[in-house]
Design a protein around this nucleic acid. Structure first.
Lengths: 340, 340
DNA sequence: AATTAGCAGTCAAACAAAAAGAGTGCTAAC
DNA sequence: GTTAGCACTCTTTTTGTTTGACTGCTAATT
């Protein structure tokens, strides 16, 4: 059912005010602040109707109204006035991204830092797994007699956190040889493809079968999101929100947010095309406390999805600001990543 | 002034009980629980004297006694009975350290995880900077036309988080050449020494002066503690302590603990020989909230200090357990690191 | 001289009752 | 459809009272 214009307007003000003050919104305050042309009694009737429709709730019979999860959803999709960031904020974003960042990981870290700073919320970022990434070069670096560091250069980043064991009997020359051969084998293929050529290794490569199998294991690690790919920033920001005055709520929130694996499943869920994605309330996601929202955006370079970033915080968050920040950061981020 | 045996005993019980219950300790409870041979009135006299001496405080005139920072210090150094860990706990520690860990960083992460788990406190770990470390090999890996990854193998670890820029005009062969030459130059010298040979580069090396200068910059990064060398675990554990029921206290604590640079300065301060180092209350350390303690231990391999680890938490913490955990983890850690 | 019993005094915490205040819902008039 | 006005509800704040856990002190005891 479509709401009347007036209902929409009133609902918008309720959400606006509630986000601003964290106090249940009364009919009187609405007329005083925004609706001087109609009486509080009229507003009361409308509020009552909006409650009937499921957009508002009351904590008790004689309290003001609080938006429901449904109301927030409508607010974000329809009601909310899109905000622009101040010049100061824009400058801040630009400044941070001007800093030297040699690799994707640093860029993500900067991103979450900026977002958390500007929104005063906990921010999360994750790099998508490398499943479809094309490999450019593979390099082995033996630094212990039986262990070698694996370096993998892909289109977008340099992976360097994996080790394979090599036979101590293998000479350095043989290892270089293996490197050359396997690099050739993998070049221009995606992680997925490389993992699937397990069986038909031609005679040319057969001497390095063991190393290759180790390599495949290493690749697999990068094909699912790793904990180290999840970046969190400002976990403590939640403490500044009045509705989190209760220790148990904080504990609950932190227990979600400090477990990176939980955050991973949260973020990996949405592979949709929508740029900005808002999950309000549980929305069926068990991982989030039901008074939380998750607002995320995906970023891509040259049309390929690189990762997801966003904020997680109380359902009563400043969506105007959050969306504005995510959009602006997104723009800058994409331009940086595309020009690499 | 030396305390009488009886005073010591009473003080010990007060601290024990207070650590256990978090409730101010009364004369009656002391006689009931531990001192059935003397009357509560006598204990009251002793408590009063101990308060006079600065070891105990009262929250208000008719409350039980709470240990002062001084009392905790005395408790840890003199009074406390050293505890042994249960077999279960020992097994747990051993199990964790049996897991494969290819590098020092992973070992530290495991260490902090174990400590936080067993003590229910926030634990911190930091790897000492590499100032005096001897370099074994240096490797450049060009992964973008103008950027190369620097790999440095030292006695204790593989450093791989630094990039230098190289002229695009430089061929891969020249880079390998530079690598060989500089590796030779640096081998068996410490970071410090390498940084100081800036001037007298002999003609043999002079062709790579620029690269060398870049390399020195990279080395310098490892000569001070970096944020990524600081590991924190269980930041949320503080929420389980009853004296941290106040949001502001939590905020205060978390603001220290989430800023790795603050933790860095905290941990880098103590280069003393003492194995276990206890800082109770502020003790002049501005960084710690004054109702917190920091208990740390340094670990070394083959006589060289490798880093520091420990716990940070409320002044009322289970020092018996903390010390026991740190000592046991320390033993295992040193044996692992020494045998590498 | 050290110990102890006993008691008065103190203070926080728990409880209860009352008052104040903010809002709504409803009715009747406009 | 809108609005004024009032009764009603429920929270929050205030105030007062009681209870109980301690201590400190004094005077008696060992």
């Amino acid at each position: 059912m479509e709401l009347s214009e007036r209902k929409k307007k009133i609902l918008q003000h309720v959400v606006d005010d509630y986000i601003e003050t964290a106090v249940p919104v009364s009919s009187k305050s609405l007329t005083e602040r925004h609706l001087s042309n109609i009486s509080s009694a009229t507003v009361r009737n409308e509020l009552s109707a909006l409650e009937e429709l499921g957009y508002l709730t009351q904590l008790h019979t004689s309290s003001g109204r609080v938006p429901s999860a449904e109301a927030y959803k409508l607010y974000v999709s329809d009601l909310m006035v899109k905000n622009k960031l101040s010049d100061k904020e824009l400058d801040y974003i630009k400044k941070v991204f001007l800093e030297k960042a040699d690799n994707l990981e640093e860029v993500i870290k900067n991103t979450t830092k900026v977002i958390s700073e500007l929104t005063s919320l906990t921010s999360v970022g994750v790099v998508s797994p490398d499943v479809g990434e094309k490999i450019k070069v593979i390099k082995f670096f033996r630094y212990k007699p039986d262990t070698a560091l694996v370096l993998i250069v892909t289109e977008r980043r340099l992976l360097k956190d994996n080790y394979i064991s090599v036979p101590e009997t293998m000479t350095d020359e043989q290892l270089v040889e293996a490197e050359t051969v396997l690099s050739k084998l993998c070049a221009e293929r995606s992680f997925e493809e490389v993992c699937n050529i397990k069986d038909d290794i031609s005679s040319e490569f057969s001497g390095y079968k063991n190393i290759f199998l180790n390599l495949v294991e290493a690749l697999k690690v990068y094909m699912t999101v790793k904990e180290s790919d999840v970046v969190l920033e400002g976990e403590d920001k939640i403490l500044n929100h009045p509705e989190y005055a209760d220790i148990n709520k904080i504990r609950n929130f932190l227990s979600v947010v400090t477990q990176k694996d939980k955050v991973m499943t949260l973020l990996s869920g949405d592979g949709r095309d929508i740029k900005i994605n808002v999950k309000i309330g549980t929305d069926g996601y068990e991982e989030i406390p039901d008074d939380c929202s998750l607002v995320t955006a995906t970023y891509s370079a040259n049309g390929v999805k690189i990762g997801t970033y966003g904020v997680i915080g109380p359902i009563r968050m400043d969506y105007q600001k959050v969306v504005a920040v995510l959009e602006n950061v997104g723009k800058i981020l994409e331009s940086i990543l595309t020009n690499r």
